[in-house]
């Protein structure tokens, strides 16, 4: 019964969280802290902190963590599937629709607008991350260094991530 509850709750979270990442936080908090009392407010804040230093989307991280705490490994699996399933289904339907009407000119016209729009959204994301992380001159140097290496020399993002992690460890004391 608790497994079903986990599944339904995380399915709901996955279903109604648009925009990814931090946009999902209020919804997750409402469901797991206030409605179901699976976590205390403090535990929730801790999960957000841990999600920031582990790979993967915060929605999935909290689903896995809460699922495990409430229902063991099976709980973790069920919650994780629950939170991913709506995206998979809806994305799948959107994709089918786009492929089906690919040669219709209205899809082409829509994407003509969507491409610059999305570019603007990604630019906004870069600005927001910049604003939140570049708090001093050292941070700005890392930002500039990585930007140039990435744009001019096309260095691998994994390599750049590792490099900047080491740099951060060395220069922030």
């Amino acid at each position: 019964m608790i497994l079903l509850k986990l599944f339904i709750t995380f399915f709901k979270i996955g279903m109604f969280s648009f925009g990814g990442g931090y946009a999902m936080l209020p919804l997750i908090q409402l469901q797991v802290v206030e409605i179901n009392n699976w976590l205390s407010k403090k535990e929730f804040i801790d999960i957000v902190a841990v999600s920031q230093v582990t790979p993967g989307p915060i929605a999935i991280n909290s689903a896995t963590y809460i699922g495990y705490k409430i229902g063991g490994v099976i709980g973790a699996v069920i919650s994780t599937i629950g939170v991913c399933l709506p995206s998979v289904i809806i994305m799948f339907i959107l994709l089918k629709f786009v492929i089906r009407f690919k040669n219709n000119n209205f899809i082409e016209d829509i994407f003509k607008f969507l491409r610059p729009t999305v570019l603007g959204l990604i630019l906004a994301a870069a600005m927001i991350i910049f604003q939140e992380s570049v708090l001093g001159f050292k941070e700005f140097l890392i930002f500039l260094f990585v930007f140039v290496l990435s744009l001019k020399y096309k260095l691998d993002p994994i390599l750049l991530t590792l490099l900047s992690g080491i740099l951060g460890y060395l220069i922030f004391t």
Binding site: Q52, V134, E139, F140, I142, L144, V146, T161, S164
Partner: peptide, 13 residues
């Protein structure tokens, strides 16, 4: 500290 280095790098990438 490691992440203080990674976050500005993400903005750059």
């Amino acid at each position: 500290r490691i992440f203080m280095g990674i976050r500005p790098a993400v903005a750059g990438m």
